[in-house]
């Protein structure tokens, strides 16, 4: 408990997490408002239902990737990781506490992005298909909580492995925003690989753009994909903690 408390103080005693959080929420919610104000939807043709309100969540997710990676790499950058390990010599404990204290705000940001985007769209351009009726609808909106939380865990794991802000941020963003998309361009094997990529899995859990024909024959269902995404994040985190235990601080 005391370790969690220490990590909480660390997180909240600098201003950058607040700015990141603000950015992570304001960017997608603000742009969603812009979309809502321009959208001209005929009743009945909004086939995508509530998904249309969540299309910009990836912006918030990208900011969370950066924020979570920074929370560990900045400790290496400023040498405070040594104080951390000096106070809590069990590195796994210290790093798990940090993971918890980073993942929880990420989940709150996810909630704000998911429900905020949905609410702002509803407020500006309300139509019946936007109601949260089915389990699928709820997954698309409330599911952001879990996706943002797991995204933060994955980013922390990568940060622990790379320990260097520029490298970790570049790897995470290029991977999430470019690699996963480009792999689909590889003929024959591309699709099969893509079906097992973590952020692809996260999007399938949320059910974004589910009506595209390439996405019909998927190996897992939405909850299976969430479990898979969580398992990948957990594996990366475990690798990060192991590497931190083995290397000199």
């Amino acid at each position: 408990m005391s370790v969690l408390n220490a990590e909480r103080i660390k997180l909240l005693s600098t201003r950058s997490p607040w700015w990141c959080a603000l950015l992570a929420i304001a960017l997608p919610v603000g742009l969603t408002a812009l979309i809502a104000s321009q959208a001209q939807i005929q009743p009945g043709d909004a086939g995508n239902g509530v998904y249309i309100t969540q299309m910009l969540s990836s912006l918030g997710r990208a900011v969370v990737l950066v924020m979570a990676a920074l929370s560990i790499t900045s400790e290496y950058r400023f040498g405070t990781i040594r104080s951390t390990f000096q106070v809590v010599p069990h590195r796994a404990t210290a790093l798990l506490a940090k993971t918890a204290v980073t993942a929880i705000p990420a989940m709150l940001i996810g909630a704000a992005v998911g429900f905020g985007s949905w609410a702002v769209f509803q407020a500006i351009n309300s139509f019946p298909e936007l109601a949260l009726d089915t389990a699928q609808d709820w997954r698309a909106v409330a599911g952001q909580v879990l996706v943002f939380g797991i995204t933060a865990v994955l980013a922390l794991g990568v940060g622990m492995l790379i320990r260097q802000t520029a490298g970790a941020v570049a790897v995470l963003l290029v991977y999430a925003l470019l690699v996963e998309g480009l792999i689909g361009l590889i003929p024959k094997i591309g699709d099969d690989i893509q079906h097992w990529l973590p952020f692809f899995a996260a999007d399938r859990f949320l059910g974004l753009q589910d009506d595209i024909p390439q996405l019909r024959d998927l190996p897992l269902g939405p909850w299976g994909y969430l479990a898979y995404f969580a398992a990948v994040a957990a594996a990366v985190l475990a690798a990060g903690i192991l590497s931190a235990q083995r290397r000199d601080a």
């Binding site: 370790v3 408390n5 220490a6 909480r8 103080i9 005693s13 600098t14 950058s16 400023f78």
Partner: peptide
């Protein structure tokens, strides 16, 4: 080895909390 944007008191606070 301190975070430049953290106050001296906050630096001691997290050490004390742990």
């Amino acid at each position: 080895w301190v975070h430049p944007n953290r106050s001296a008191r906050a630096h001691l606070r997290w050490l004390a909390a742990a």
